[in-house]
Each structure stands twice: as structure tokens, then as C-alpha cells.
């Protein structure tokens, strides 16, 4: 079962195998969640986006033509879901339906054995990183998240986003440069 490719599983799902799509979900849910979390920065949003991604994939299963990999197809759906959610959230924030500070509040698991000062420092740093990543343009954010959260290779990212390899590298370079500028004070202040 595990050796069957994703593309074969899609074919099975299309031919009426009810479990086939479940296998695809189990294979990819973690990575899609990681992508959504990196893009959205909130656990709850990431869960919803992951769920909507697989729901959209199941609905459009017949639209999968097999020209690209299933993983690339799922990544594109997930990124679109994240962009849509961010757009909606921005509208809600602008219309005052949601508190901006509350929406941006990230959930971090910091070890309880750390000292209060250390925990506060870690919380501050991770929050700064989350804000810096969230502030990146979507096309830069998606490459940095795919690279750092999903640990995809440049080639995999290029396939998933249907971009030339050099574009992926240059976008990643730009993303790192922008993050460095935003986190510059911290990086230099840490003395590492």
C-alpha cells in the first residue's frame, strides 16, 4: 500500500476506491500543515487551511490531469487556500471584526523548565520571527516556508510552484535578505 505512488492512488480514488484518497491525506497532511502554519503563523488557521486544502483537492480530483505531481498539486492548492484566508482576515481586520493583535498572536511551546527570563526572551524572539515572516510578500514567504518548514529541495520547490530553479533561488535570497533586515537588531544583538 505504501509503495503505491500518489498518482496511482489518485487513479484508484477516481475509480471508486474510498480509502485511496485517505492514504494521500495521511501521507501529506503534516507537510501541508507545516506549510500552512508557516504561511499563516497561527495553529488554528493552519488546521483550517489544511482541512480546506484536502477538501478542495477531493472535490477537484477529476481536475487532476496527472501532468504534475500530486504533491505539487496539493502545495498549490494549499498556498491558494492560505492566500484566500489571509485576504479574508485582512478584510475582517479592516472592518473591525477582529482584533489585529489577537489575530497576530502566535502560539509557541516554550519548555517549562526554562527560567522566566529565558522564556520571555524566547517568546519575544519567536514572535519577532513570526511577524517578520508574515510581513514578507507571498511569493517570498512561500519559498522560505517550503524550504525551512518542509525542508524541500530547490528542485522540489521549483516543481511545486512551476518556477525556474534560478527564480526559486533568487526569491529565497531576497527573502533571507529581508528577514535579515527585519531581524538584524536581534541577530547582531545575540552575539552569535
Amino acid at each position: 500500500m505504501e509503495t503505491t505512488s500518489d498518482e496511482q492512488m489518485v487513479e484508484r480514488a477516481l475509480s471508486g476506491d474510498a480509502d485511496a484518497f485517505g492514504v494521500i491525506v495521511r501521507r501529506w497532511e503534516r507537510r501541508i500543515y507545516a506549510l500552512a502554519f508557516g504561511m499563516l503563523g497561527r495553529e488554528e488557521d493552519a488546521r483550517d487551511a489544511t482541512q480546506e486544502t484536502f477538501l478542495a483537492a477531493f472535490r477537484n480530483l477529476r481536475g487532476f490531469r496527472g501532468e504534475a505531481k500530486v504533491s505539487s498539486w496539493l502545495h498549490r492548492i494549499a498556498i491558494n487556500q492560505c492566500i484566500t484566508r489571509q485576504r479574508r482576515a485582512r478584510v475582517r481586520a479592516e472592518t473591525g471584526l477582529e482584533d489585529e493583535a489577537e489575530r497576530d498572536a502566535g502560539v509557541f511551546t516554550i519548555a517549562a523548565h526554562e527560567s522566566p527570563a529565558r522564556r520571555a526572551e524566547a517568546r519575544e524572539r519567536t514572535e519577532a520571527v513570526r511577524r517578520a515572516v508574515s510581513a514578507l510578500p507571498t511569493e517570498l514567504r512561500q519559498v522560505i516556508v517550503m524550504k525551512e518548514f518542509e525542508e524541500m529541495t530547490f528542485q522540489e520547490i521549483a516543481q511545486a510552484l512551476e518556477l525556474p530553479l534560478s527564480t526559486v533561488k533568487s526569491r529565497l535570497y531576497t527573502a533571507l535578505k529581508q528577514l535579515r533586515m527585519r531581524l538584524g537588531t536581534h541577530a547582531a544583538g545575540a552575539g552569535r
Binding site: 503534516r30 502554519f37 493552519a46 509557541f108 516554550i110 520571527v129 535578505k177 552569535r192
Partner: peptide, 27 residues
Amino acid sequence: ELAAFSHVREDVVEWRNLSLPSFESST
């Protein structure tokens, strides 16, 4: 730039490691 980007990567990875364990333990 290599040194600075390495620091940025460390920060991003730390954020990832602090954020994703809750997901892994609840699945």
C-alpha cells in the same frame, strides 16, 4: 551575508521547532 543568513535560518528553525511540536503530539 552567509553568516547573517545562517543566523536568520537559526531563528526561523527555532520558531518552527517551538510551534510544530503541538501539532505532532495531537495527531
